[in-house]
Simulated assay, not measured.
Amino acid sequence: MRKIILASHGDLAKGMKSTIKMLSGIDDNIVAVGFYDGEDVKNVFNKVESMLNIEDEFIIITDLPGGSVNTVLTPLVRRGNVHLISGMNTVLVLMLALCTSYEIECILNCIDEGKTSMVYVNEILKENKKEESGDFFD
């Protein structure tokens, strides 16, 4: 069975889990773990490690590349059944939740979709306005 573990600073992981459930109805195989002020980051490691088993395959998604949550969970990739991705966003998590396999190609495709989903709307509106009027500042 495939499982997703969302791990973040504060409540981002919990909010992301709620968002994915709202958008897709998927809830059963997604777990959220938060790291909070005053807590030892090793507690995050211990919580996540206790969820791992040999039979299942896991994707751990963290919020911040190089952040304390991502750093403390990095040793878990030594297990053959753990994938670690950092830079959590809704499209990335939704795509992974909907994936039918965790083949490397599928994971990389989900990451690409997550990256391309980020746009600067002001620029898009500016370009659309230029196309409509010929000059944005008319």
Rank of each mutant, 00 (worst) to 15 (best):
K3L: 05
I4A: 02
L6V: 01
L6I: 00
A7D: 00
A7F: 02
A7P: 00
H9V: 05
G10F: 07
L12D: 02
A13F: 01
A13I: 01
G15W: 07
G15V: 03
K17E: 04
S18D: 10
K21C: 08
G25F: 08
I26N: 03
D27G: 08
N29H: 15
N29S: 14
N29V: 08
I30W: 05
I30A: 05
I30N: 02
V31E: 07
V33E: 00
G34S: 05
G34T: 02
F35M: 03
F35C: 01
D37M: 08
D37V: 07
G38H: 10
G38Q: 07
E39Y: 10
E39W: 11
D40E: 10
V41K: 00
V41H: 01
N43M: 09
N43S: 14
V44N: 02
V44S: 02
V44H: 03
F45W: 04
N46A: 14
V48C: 05
V48E: 02
S50D: 02
M51G: 04
M51P: 05
L52A: 01
N53E: 08
E55W: 05
D56L: 08
D56N: 14
F58M: 04
F58K: 02
I60L: 02
I60V: 04
I61R: 02
I61A: 03
T62K: 03
L64H: 11
L64S: 07
L64N: 06
P65R: 10
G67I: 10
S68Y: 06
N70K: 06
T71I: 05
V72G: 00
V72A: 03
L73A: 04
P75D: 08
P75Y: 09
L76R: 01
L76S: 03
L76K: 00
L76C: 01
V77T: 13
V77W: 09
V77D: 03
R78D: 04
R78T: 04
R79W: 08
R79G: 04
G80L: 01
V82A: 03
L84H: 10
I85M: 02
S86G: 10
G87R: 06
G87C: 06
M88N: 10
N89H: 09
T90R: 07
T90N: 08
V91S: 07
V93Y: 05
V93H: 03
L94A: 04
L94H: 09
L94N: 05
M95E: 14
M95K: 13
L96D: 07
A97F: 06
A97G: 11
L98T: 12
L98S: 14
L98Y: 14
C99Q: 15
Y102M: 09
E103I: 01
I104K: 15
E105H: 11
C106M: 05
C106V: 04
L108K: 15
C110R: 00
I111D: 09
I111E: 08
K115R: 15
K115S: 11
T116H: 13
T116E: 13
T116N: 14
T116S: 13
S117Q: 11
M118Y: 15
M118E: 14
V119Q: 14
V119T: 12
Y120A: 08
V121P: 04
N122W: 10
E123W: 13
I124L: 14
I124V: 12
L125H: 12
K126H: 13
E127W: 10
E127T: 13
E127P: 02
E127H: 12
N128L: 14
N128I: 11
N128T: 12
N128M: 15
K129M: 12
K130Y: 15
K130E: 14
E132D: 12
G134I: 10
D135M: 13
F136L: 15
D138R: 15
